[in-house]
Amino acid sequence: MYWTSLIALALIRPSQALIRFGCSQLVVDRLDPLVNPGMEPSPHLHQIIGGNSFNASMYKEDHDLAKLSTCTSCQPSEDFSNYWTASLFFRARNGTYKRVPQKGNVGFEAQRGGMTVYYMQASLGDFQQKAKVKAFQPGFRMLIGSPSASTKPEADKYPQLTYTCLQDMNTRYPETKDFPAKPCPAGIMVNLRFPTCWNGVDLDSPDHISHMSYPANGTFENQGPCPASHPVRVAQVMYEVIFETKAFNKKADWPTDGSQPFVWSFGDTTGFGNHGDYVFGWKDDSLQKILDEECYVQCKTMKTQSIEEMNRCSIPKKVDEDVGDDAWIDAIPDETAIRFWSSP
């Protein structure tokens, strides 16, 4: 799907809510309370944003993010949800690695790493945002994608996880399912769009996916109906993560065989294992009020904080290890997660 400029879209008079906001980095750590609850360290590294009550044991039902967090790294000051994805690495010709940092999106250039988050009533291209959707409930959580996916057919089970090779910061197409095959001047944007049909009962499921569904036919973008098994239409949560690749864009540093050099922290060099996690933590009914408001990006009912305040919200790392932020490292933490590299 082709995403047009938000500046142009903001000139269109809205009917219902679409919100877009930046979130600074809360922490980069080897924790995953959804898939590996209580485990320190988890199998692979993540970059995490949102409320500062994030920890390895927050899977417990009594962990109320909105009540236990004292700050959030996101622009909405009442959003203490946590959002996270895997971290990205660059592999040099000599086999060493460095973590690829994130940078702020258009309008959020001053934020410290992190990502951009959307909540949408309908597709971004539906300027009027006419659909009505229900906000998530306390304790709700989900993930999308599979780190074990290593082929396009496996990745196609999750149709809205893609990459954009940014020629400049306003590039939004084409989108691909695998990593870009050539250097991207303005970075690699990783796009994650979550399913939008909920079974209306379960706040989670054993696989963290099956309580959610894609539309029965059609897509979220064309207002496809939800299946009878998942009848409740919820907002589409979308992440845009921009990895700053400028330090790694010299073709002379890329593999001599012409392959691309980027690898996810769980060892995927194809890009097909793209995945993301979400735990709801908005205060009281603040998200529902925003979704019920006639607004577009700038919503009166959304209380916000400054980028400086976002940047100040962080938590210390739990796992003491070198993740390749400064010097090159010999292996990605944890090396046992690396599955896809073949011998040169």
Rank of each mutant, 00 (worst) to 15 (best):
137 Q>F: 09
137 Q>I: 07
138 P>Q: 07
141 R>A: 13
142 M>G: 05
142 M>N: 06
143 L>S: 13
144 I>T: 15
144 I>S: 10
145 G>M: 12
147 P>Q: 12
147 P>L: 11
149 A>I: 09
150 S>H: 13
151 T>S: 15
153 P>R: 06
154 E>W: 04
155 A>L: 09
157 K>T: 14
158 Y>M: 01
158 Y>K: 02
160 Q>T: 10
160 Q>I: 01
162 T>W: 08
163 Y>C: 04
164 T>Y: 01
164 T>W: 01
164 T>S: 05
165 C>W: 02
166 L>P: 01
167 Q>M: 08
168 D>R: 06
171 T>A: 03
171 T>M: 06
171 T>L: 04
173 Y>G: 05
173 Y>T: 08
174 P>W: 03
174 P>G: 00
174 P>R: 00
176 T>I: 01
177 K>P: 01
178 D>S: 13
179 F>R: 00
179 F>Y: 04
180 P>S: 03
183 P>G: 12
184 C>P: 04
187 G>W: 03
188 I>D: 01
188 I>T: 01
188 I>G: 02
189 M>S: 09
190 V>K: 11
192 L>P: 01
193 R>D: 13
194 F>H: 11
197 C>T: 14
198 W>A: 11
200 G>H: 07
202 D>R: 03
204 D>R: 14
206 P>K: 09
206 P>R: 06
207 D>Q: 11
208 H>D: 08
210 S>A: 13
210 S>L: 06
211 H>T: 11
211 H>W: 08
215 P>C: 14
215 P>F: 14
218 G>A: 03
221 E>I: 01
223 Q>I: 01
223 Q>K: 15
224 G>M: 05
227 P>K: 07
229 S>G: 15
229 S>I: 14
229 S>F: 13
230 H>P: 07
230 H>V: 14
232 V>C: 06
235 A>K: 04
236 Q>A: 12
238 M>D: 04
239 Y>K: 00
240 E>V: 00
241 V>K: 01
241 V>G: 00
241 V>W: 03
242 I>G: 03
244 E>V: 08
244 E>W: 08
245 T>A: 09
246 K>W: 07
248 F>M: 08
249 N>M: 10
250 K>S: 15
253 D>S: 14
253 D>V: 12
253 D>G: 12
253 D>M: 15
254 W>R: 08
255 P>T: 10
258 G>Q: 06
260 Q>E: 11
261 P>N: 02
261 P>S: 05
262 F>N: 02
263 V>T: 13
263 V>M: 15
265 S>V: 07
266 F>S: 03
267 G>H: 10
267 G>F: 14
267 G>A: 10
268 D>Q: 08
269 T>A: 11
